[in-house]
Simulated assay, not measured.
Amino acid sequence: MTYKLGLTGSIGMGKSTTAKIFAENGCAVWDADAAVHRLYSQGGAAVAPIGHAFPSAIVDDAVSRDRLKSLIADYPDALNKIESIVHPLVAEDRAIYLSETEADITVLDIPLLFETGADALMDATVCVTVPPETQKARVMERGTMTEEQFQAILSKQLPDAEKRARADYVIVTDTLEHARAQVQDVLKDIQGRRTNA
Rank of each mutant, 00 (worst) to 15 (best):
M1T: 10
Y3M: 02
K4Y: 02
L5D: 00
L7S: 08
T8K: 11
I11K: 02
G12E: 02
K15E: 00
S16H: 06
T17E: 09
I21H: 15
F22I: 02
F22S: 02
A23K: 01
C27Y: 00
W30A: 07
D33F: 12
A34W: 07
A34E: 06
H37E: 06
R38E: 09
R38W: 06
L39C: 05
Y40L: 09
Y40R: 11
Y40D: 12
Q42M: 14
G44W: 04
G44A: 06
A45D: 13
P49T: 09
P49G: 09
I50A: 02
G51R: 05
H52Q: 12
A53W: 00
P55Y: 04
A57N: 07
A57T: 07
V59S: 13
V59N: 12
D60T: 14
V63C: 12
V63K: 04
S64A: 14
K69P: 10
K69Q: 09
S70G: 08
I72V: 09
P76R: 15
A78T: 13
N80I: 13
N80V: 12
I82Q: 00
E83V: 10
E83F: 03
E83M: 12
I85M: 03
H87T: 12
L89H: 13
L89N: 13
A91C: 13
R94K: 11
S99G: 08
T101K: 10
D104S: 14
I105T: 07
T106G: 05
V107N: 00
V107P: 01
D109V: 02
I110G: 01
L112C: 13
L112T: 09
L113G: 09
L113N: 07
E115D: 12
T116Y: 09
G117M: 04
A118N: 05
L121Q: 05
M122H: 03
D123H: 03
T125G: 00
V126Q: 01
V128W: 01
T129E: 03
V130D: 00
P132S: 11
T134S: 05
A137Y: 00
M140H: 13
G143T: 13
G143Y: 14
M145Y: 08
E147D: 11
E148P: 06
Q149K: 03
F150I: 00
F150P: 03
A152F: 08
S155H: 03
K156R: 15
K156C: 15
L158W: 11
P159Y: 04
A161Q: 06
E162V: 10
A167W: 02
D168S: 07
D168N: 08
T175K: 04
T175P: 02
H178M: 11
R180H: 08
R180A: 02
A181V: 11
Q182N: 12
V186Y: 01
K188I: 10
K188G: 09
R193L: 07
R194D: 11
R194V: 07
T195F: 15
T195Q: 15
N196F: 14
